[in-house]
């Protein structure tokens, strides 16, 4: 009783038959074997599972894979350049020490990247507001805010 889905993941067309119950995050992690997208809570609270579906940041633990059928999905693995150079937002997180254990980081980075073009020269307050869907249990957020600010400005260059 599988249903066919066809999803473009990080530029690669993935066709599969899935149980309708398959969550997008399980499709990404188990079917596509892209384990950079994390599951922190599995209840749509923490944002660790954030990916882009057609350019919009979403929590992939709270969406069926079938809801992304025909869509373009971007995960953390799709950010870096083909030669391995980090994406400006990834580089900013490294530079600003915007992570400690790193569990929340893929979601933070994906969520932050969606802000590009929406927030120009944001204040700390605006960044904190915009990251309200992402929880970090380690850093205390200060360096994440710094990283997002620097990453967004480098993305504009």
């Amino acid at each position: 009783m599988g249903i066919p889905v066809s999803i473009n993941v990080n530029g690669r067309a993935v066709d599969a038959d899935v149980d309708p119950r398959t969550l997008l995050v399980d499709f990404i992690r188990t079917h596509c074997r892209l384990t950079g997208t994390h599951v922190g809570c599995d209840t749509a609270q923490c944002g660790a599972c954030t990916v882009h579906v057609d350019g919009r940041a979403v929590k992939s633990c709270n969406l069926l894979a079938a809801q992304a059928n025909g869509a373009t999905v971007l995960t953390i693995e799709g950010l870096a350049a083909a030669n391995g150079d980090m994406h400006p937002m990834q580089a900013a997180f490294k530079e600003c020490h915007g992570l400690q254990c790193g569990f929340c980081t893929p979601g933070m980075v994906m969520s932050a990247c969606e802000l590009s073009g929406k927030l120009t020269n944001p204040t700390d307050e605006q960044i904190r507001d915009a990251l309200d869907g992402n929880i970090c249990r380690c850093t205390g957020y200060h360096n994440i805010v710094k990283a997002v600010k620097s990453g967004l400005s480098n993305m504009q260059k």
């Binding site: 749509a44 919009r56 979403v58 929590k59 709270n62 969606e114």
Partner: peptide, 9 residues
């Protein structure tokens, strides 16, 4: 409402 990811969906 909720957070940015929820509002997107």
């Amino acid at each position: 409402i909720g957070d940015r990811q929820i509002r997107n969906v």
